[in-house]
Amino acid sequence: MRTVSAAETAPTTHPWAVHTEQLRVRAGRHLAVDGLDLTLGTGVHGLLGPNGAGKTTLMRALATVLEPAGGKLTLLGESVDGRADLRRIRRGLGYLPQQFGFYPRFTVREFVEYMAWLKEMPKATVPGAVQRAIERVGLADRAGARLKTLSGGMLRRVGIAQAIVNDPALLLLDEPTVGLDPEQRLDFRELLRDLGVDSCVLVSTHLVEDVVAACGDVVMINQGRLVFQGTPDDLVAQGGDGDAGDSPAERGYSALLRRDRAGACR
């Protein structure tokens, strides 16, 4: 019996969790992501953009739900193409879509356990991982409750629990704060910061203030193209007193959107 080194047991790391080059993705017949160049590493990244900007389509492509129509997509060091082992990539992913399906008669614990099984987690690790995920989203006292009895905000937290149960290297959260009250949103921001220490977390949201408070990197897209990527301070610096918004970050966002639209009209 040989001794196993620390290097062999350490988690696999990648220079970039997400790397795209001229990525194109269709939503039906519409080219919703059009020539996107994007690189994301460890940390919390906020994805902003108006309705119809391509945010959800991009998230679905990164979750390997949609196949790219062109360009290059690399996730966790592996190119996503016709030869990719999607099952292996998906073991390292966590994904919360805008609307996620669930079985109403399942309890919180049963549902998160079921999702852990779908993610092919080792059987021995599942009970502890499920309990930890439920506790992290503040539902330990409702672990035995059936999903059909939960409020919309609680269901959203169950969705977050299933997304993080496998400690994903790449976590994709599409509008995760919908239905959360102000206190729960504050707790969620703290959870995001904790998750971003070791993982790449991408959060799509319309709430600019959530991005500024919880994210170290801001990505903004419009019409499927990259408009801006930088720190929250960089975002704030884009705006001025004459721009629309109730906060410096919102004014920066509206200024970027206004300039992008003006450029597209020329």
Rank of each mutant, 00 (worst) to 15 (best):
M1Y: 00
A6N: 12
A6F: 04
T9P: 02
P11S: 09
T13V: 15
H14Y: 13
L31M: 09
V33R: 05
G35I: 03
T39P: 05
L40M: 07
H45S: 12
H45T: 14
L47T: 04
L48T: 07
P50F: 04
T57E: 03
M59I: 09
A61H: 06
L62A: 10
L66S: 08
L76M: 00
G77Y: 09
G77W: 01
G92A: 15
L93K: 10
G94H: 02
Q98D: 05
F100H: 01
Y103E: 07
F106G: 03
T107D: 00
E110C: 04
E110W: 02
E110P: 06
Y114W: 13
W117T: 14
W117D: 10
P122L: 10
T125Q: 13
G128R: 15
R132T: 12
R132H: 02
R136M: 14
V137W: 03
R142S: 15
R146V: 06
L147T: 09
K148E: 10
T149M: 09
S151G: 06
V158S: 00
G159Y: 13
V165F: 13
V165R: 12
N166E: 08
N166A: 12
L170T: 10
L170M: 11
L172C: 01
D174G: 03
P176S: 08
D187Q: 08
F188P: 09
F188N: 04
E190S: 08
E190R: 10
L192T: 02
D194G: 06
L195W: 06
V201C: 01
L202M: 09
L202E: 00
C215R: 08
D217T: 11
V218M: 03
V219S: 05
N222P: 03
Q223I: 04
R225G: 15
V227A: 05
Q229Y: 05
P232G: 07
A237R: 11
A249L: 11
R251P: 04
S254A: 05
L256E: 14
C265F: 03
